[in-house]
Amino acid sequence: MNELARFIRSQYAVDSDGIFYDGTKRYWSNLDRAENRSLADAVKEGGVRQTLGRRFPHLEEVIYSPKRQAGLELLELSGDEVCVDYGCMWGALTLPLARRTRFVLGIDQTLESLQFLKARLREEGIDNAVLLRADLNALPVFPQNARIDVALVNGVLEWVPETGDVELKSYYGKPRERKYSGTPLKHQEAFLKRLHENLAPTGKLYLAIENRYDFKMFFGVPDPHSNLPFTSLLPRKAADKISQMKLRRPYVNWTYSLNGTKTLLERAGFSKVDLYLCFPDYRFPEKIIRLDRPLDGFRPTIASSNSKGKKTFARLAARAAERFFFGILKAKALAPAIIAIGTK
């Protein structure tokens, strides 16, 4: 057993499913609680993928697609790493990481997601992963001998300032008054500083996040975090006002530009930050390219057909815009998403 696993066992209680916990009751999921509970219960008996495909077919690709793990190669893993997947949810990257490395600790605040992931790990015979239900903002400093080699923060940093529960559908739709202390930046910095502290001297961070200046945002495509147009682009105060008006809460899901992401990581203590542009998004990347490489020969990455195989005007227009911004203008600053590899 490695030192991180030993530390988790010594610090946290464990439930009957083998999931460690710190007492948090928080919730974040694309599914609402009832749906997520029924899914977690249904997969306990096995047949995880089939059950998911039957009940929530739209999630099968989100969780199982081999495309999702393409970014992990940027970490240049040796196979002997001890890793933490911060905000692991249903394990889209936890399992691929476990298959490539020595040990993975998956941390999430949502019990139902972890129960689903536990069933997946069991079914797929992965025995080098441990799950912890904990508040990402209240994680301890790991002891010196349990410092980690890889920290994965995939689509999570922008949610760190959201200290309330999130059932994504109602989070988007129903205005509900929420109050927050401190700025989103303060929460994100504190999270990254703690994470940085927990890395071994040669440890690396894998951060995947939307670009604040994603070219689609200029066309009024809703911000994927607030579901409101233009909120990522506007000055933070203006975005706050719009969010207060429409959703009765401030705009907390801060994303950053390429420079902003680098600065954020440097302020958290990372000595080296390598930036990559990611198309058409970081979840299902078709193209990832180092910031310093030319965009010569760029071809659109947004699929021309939707999931039903039909070509839509919106998709064709988005492809044309992609061709214009990146094939012709080479406007790297407007890339849809960013992957940053931070070295301690």
Binding site: S65, P66, K67, Q69, A70, G71, E73, L74, E76, D274, F284, P285, E286, K287, I288, I289, R290, R293
Partner: peptide
């Protein structure tokens, strides 16, 4: 060091190709 993801699971096979 990886410079670029050239292809991800398309072109009839289930692996990713990098420069």
């Amino acid at each position: 060091m990886i410079q670029e993801l050239l292809r991800n699971g398309s072109h009839f096979s289930a692996h990713a190709t990098y420069l």
